[in-house]
Design a protein around this nucleic acid. Structure first.
Length: 453
RNA sequence: GCUCCCAUCGUCUAGAGGCCUAGGACACAGCCCUCUCAAGGCUGCGACGAGGGUUCGAAUCCCUCUGGGAGCGCCA
């Protein structure tokens, strides 16, 4: 599943590649046949597509490279870099238990390192022969040089007893074959890196540059869970987030550029650098994401918003092919919606006459006292030579002046009449976008309603 | 338990020895603006985990402790 954490490392990689005119490679690590369903990879691809993180190469699927992995495995065996291990799972578990008991780090003791004969009844796994001494230095772009003693590492399993290669091995082969120069990933992988480097060296390959970025924690500071962020990115599309807003939020988690908060995609590409990436984990903050979404909505062009708003309107049963009107509506709403979903909910009245008035709003505004204002405003509207916001505004002002009542006493009844609620964009603009015909018919209906009460 | 990583407001962060009575942003509270809702403006609340060093001077460098995280799988 492509969740927030995955998106952020993908984003950093993408930005880094773009910034340095590099090649962004998309690789799907789906060696686990149980978890990697077609559906799961579909979601990853769709998510990347929605976010606009286009791959320059790939997507490559590890599940389709099994022959290549077996080939390298054979080579390792022949060259003496790997060996078959006949220890059973039970033996391994017992060993682990003993080591833990002795307050040691559990690791394989190398029993089968020098075994030459197979063991009856046991299908062997293949282990990489990790160097016994010396140190590996991971030159990390974010953490600096991190030293690991080979003595701390053990011979990891690179192929299961059924012959299938394991993750750490596949990654190494892929990084070599795909000529990966830079690896940006979560720092939960930092501990895996020395083993990978050892394997890369055994293969005669040059290890890539590594940048281990801090993890993203849930809003409560604990590990990311379903409740906060560990959901598919597509969930955010559903909830009405703009992809650039999500990306902007994510880029600021662990990275900064002075005091700047809002970034366009171009700015991110231009400014992103691993040297400005933090070392410490950060908590996911839904409030700030919401705020950023609003900021991006406000800064978007109405046309761009229309594209993303349309599906949300459709979800509410609004069927319109009038993209210009959607854009016009979006323009009136872009300062008052935190999400596109919310914008759509508040905008259906532009496309559909309200079937009922909000009870409280009607009770307060469609009253006998509002009759005079409503009548007069309709009369003035009728006489307007052109249906434009400035003209409408002037007409409403005149009514307010002539009746010596506040602007609110005129605007609110109109608002409830046309939208059904007490909330809408500025009334003059709302009426203009609505169109004269629709506005007048709604006003007439509201007048009847008010006369009856 | 062992190894590795990390540590500034509740949260995201600025800060690379004096510019710091620690700056910005989200959230929260108040005020202003106002035809509603927003947006915007102003004000407030609020942090260098602790202890030792080094230095004329430390949020910044070093050590210890404490706290958090990751890894130690025939998972990825």
């Amino acid at each position: 599943m492509l969740h927030i954490g995955g998106v952020r490392t993908a984003l950093f990689s993408w930005l880094y590649a773009k910034r340095h005119n590099g090649v962004f490679v998309l690789r799907v690590e789906d060696t686990d046949r149980e978890r990697s369903t077609e559906e799961a990879t579909r979601v990853i691809l769709d998510g990347m597509e929605w976010l606009g993180l286009r791959a320059d190469e790939g997507p490559f699927f590890q599940s389709r490279r099994m022959d290549r992995y077996r080939e390298v495995l054979e080579g390792f065996l022949e060259a003496g870099h790997a060996y078959r291990c006949y220890c059973t799972k039970e033996e391994l578990e017992a060993m682990r238990a003993r080591q833990l008991e002795a307050k040691q780090k559990p690791r394989y003791d190398g029993t089968c390192r020098n075994r030459t004969e197979p063991r009856a009844g046991v299908e062997p796994v293949i282990r990489f022969k990790n160097p016994l001494s010396g140190t590996v230095i991971v030159e990390d772009e974010i953490h600096g040089n991190v030293r690991f003693e080979n003595a701390e590492l053990d011979d990891l399993i690179i192929a299961r007893s059924d012959g299938s290669p394991t993750y750490n091995f596949c990654v190494v082969v892929d990084d070599m074959d795909m000529k990966i120069t830079h690896v940006i990933r979560g720092d939960d992988h930092l501990n895996n890196t020395p083993r990978q480097i050892n394997m890369l060296i055994a293969l005669g390959a040059t290890p890539p540059r590594y940048a281990h970025v801090p993890m993203i924690l849930g809003a409560d500071g604990a590990k990311l869970s379903k409740r906060h962020g560990a959901v598919s990115v597509l969930q955010y599309r559903e909830e009405g987030y703009l992809p650039e807003a999500l990306l902007n939020y994510l880029v600021r988690l662990g990275w900064s550029h002075g005091d700047q908060e809002v970034f366009t995609l171009d700015e991110m590409v231009r400014l992103f650098d691993t040297k400005d990436v933090n070392k410490s984990a950060s908590a996911f903050n839904p409030d700030k994401l919401l705020w950023l979404n609003q900021q991006h909505i406000m800064r978007s062009t109405p046309e761009h918003l229309a594209v993303h708003l349309k599906p949300h309107l459709q979800a509410l049963g609004v069927e319109t092919t009038d993209d210009a009107k959607i854009a016009a509506v979006a323009k009136t709403q872009q300062e008052r919606a935190k999400t596109l979903k919310e914008m759509a909910q508040n905008s259906v009245f532009f496309f559909r006459e309200p079937t009922a008035y909000d009870e409280k709003a009607a009770k307060k505004n469609l009253t006998p006292e509002s009759l005079a204002a409503l009548r007069m405003v309709m009369k003035k509207f009728e006489a307007l030579p052109t249906w434009s916001a400035p003209m409408i505004h002037a007409a409403i002002n005149e009514v307010s002046a002539e009746l010596s009542i506040g602007l609110g006493k005129v605007a609110q009844p109109i608002r409830v009449a046309v939208s059904g609620t007490s909330v809408s964009p500025p009334i003059d603009i709302t009426l203009e976008v609505l169109g004269k015909e629709s506005a007048m018919s709604r006003l007439a209906r509201a007048l009847e309603y008010a006369e009856r009460t």
